[in-house]
Write a protein that binds this DNA or RNA. Structure first.
Lengths: 236, 236
DNA sequence: TTTTGTAATTGACGATCATCAAAATCTTGG
DNA sequence: CCAAGATTTTGATGATCGTCAATTACAAAA
């Protein structure tokens, strides 16, 4: 059963271990969590759940990168959130007992831990502290959204795209000498849906970003000059 | 004490009555809520709390309109939320025991009901259902932010400004024959901070919106053709 | 009423983006 | 390896927005 010191746990980097919402719980619930707990590996492109699916539990990203996307009536869609390892997804649907409003799709090979809905509900019932920690995750989500709203209102598309590259480099980048490089896990279309522009604009933004000399982008291959100082770059 | 049937309660349209987070609670907490409950009238322009203030409780807008605004390091600011009657504000700061991240300023004469922090915390402690309802408000806030993010990515500034006018008309408009009219409770600068453009752009957007023939805007005076069908207008 | 400061509008111009179309590149199955 | 489809890039053009500057409208105080 989940134990902070047990590094052989199948889900090493999930909510059970890092900033967990599930611990501590009453001893009577430990076995319930143990029974209701499962994990699942997703290959790139595979979906954990789809829009309008009924909730099946509370999920935690253990490895990889999950994109949460909502489709609109007019056929377009918006990438609402990128869920990195350690983050919880599906809690809105769980708390409100409503269908998912987003599709959760793995952008790279990923691992997801699940606490089944029935068990999660049972544990929350008997452990108000779990609810408190869940509320705290909601607040975190609100804060993230606020940052995104502020960024959309105050910074340029070019800057926001740079910031996304930077964030991805931190988690997916691999050092090679003076450079960091990675396989970009998002298509141009994904990036467009994330910052709210057209795919052609993303292409052109990459051209302009490369002109600043920090990033080099070619298809899905991204290189970055690994500068020690993480100062914000100017005039964007 | 709060009682759904007591219409002479000082705060007729607040959380105690409509979609309340505070009821039901255990009988032992009723007196705590009664003691910790207070109300306050704000004139237009007055602030309920400022950015970085410590939390003093959970507030509910009873009448009027409250703007929640965050200042940025560069002197600019963003209007994060318009809180209408029945809505709760200050819950993030309360749940996380952190200073407010926004300033709450009344845009028109307003009334706000407060449950003092100590009492709110006591009631939440003994009533998990209150925490559940608070979490539900968090989800609502997340949904609102998602709508805003989607709107920013998929609709034009002109359309978003029209939508804001429409929403304000619903709550502040007064019918005169075939027209609805109101005093616009937001300055051009407020509107600019709300949709993420410059004040000059707001002026020009108003010009273009008027050209469609539904709204007439002159300073703070706004008129709207009261069409029975609330279909979305096209080509924006 | 006049003054005075603030808010709002207008103009001009350059930067950025959407749109449509076409070309180039990448990917995948045969 | 090649072909077909999908993705990405590039080009051209019109619409929209930011910026700076000047003007007009409004409102509070003298």
């Amino acid at each position: 059963m989940p134990d902070q010191s047990n590094s052989s746990h199948p889900c090493g980097n999930c909510a059970f271990y890092r900033d967990s919402i599930w611990q501590p719980v009453s001893s009577s619930c430990v076995s319930v969590l143990s029974r209701g707990f499962s994990r699942r590996d997703l290959i790139a492109g595979q979906s954990l759940y789809y829009q309008d699916d009924d909730n099946r539990g509370v999920f935690c990203v253990s490895k990889g990168l999950i994109a949460l996307r909502t489709q609109h009536h007019d056929g377009t869609s918006t990438l609402m959130r990128l869920a990195y390892p350690g983050e919880i997804i599906g809690f809105r649907s769980f708390l409100e007992s409503r269908p998912h409003r987003t599709e959760a799709r793995a952008l790279v090979g990923s691992r997801v831990c699940t606490v089944a809905q029935r068990d999660a509900r049972h544990v929350v019932q008997g452990n108000p502290s779990v609810l408190t920690r869940l509320a705290s995750r909601c607040i975190k989500e609100i804060d993230r959204n606020h940052e995104r709203i502020i960024a959309a209102a105050t910074t340029s598309n070019k800057q926001r795209l740079s910031d996304i590259l930077l964030r991805l480099m931190e988690t997916h980048g691999e050092r090679t000498g003076q450079f960091l490089h990675m396989q970009l896990p998002l298509s141009r279309s994904d990036l467009a849906d994330l910052i709210g522009v057209q795919t052609e604009t993303v292409s052109r933004l990459f051209t302009r970003i490369q002109a600043d000399g920090i990033f080099r982008v070619s298809g899905r291959e991204v290189q970055m000059l690994s500068v020690p100082s993480n100062k914000k770059s100017a005039n964007m």
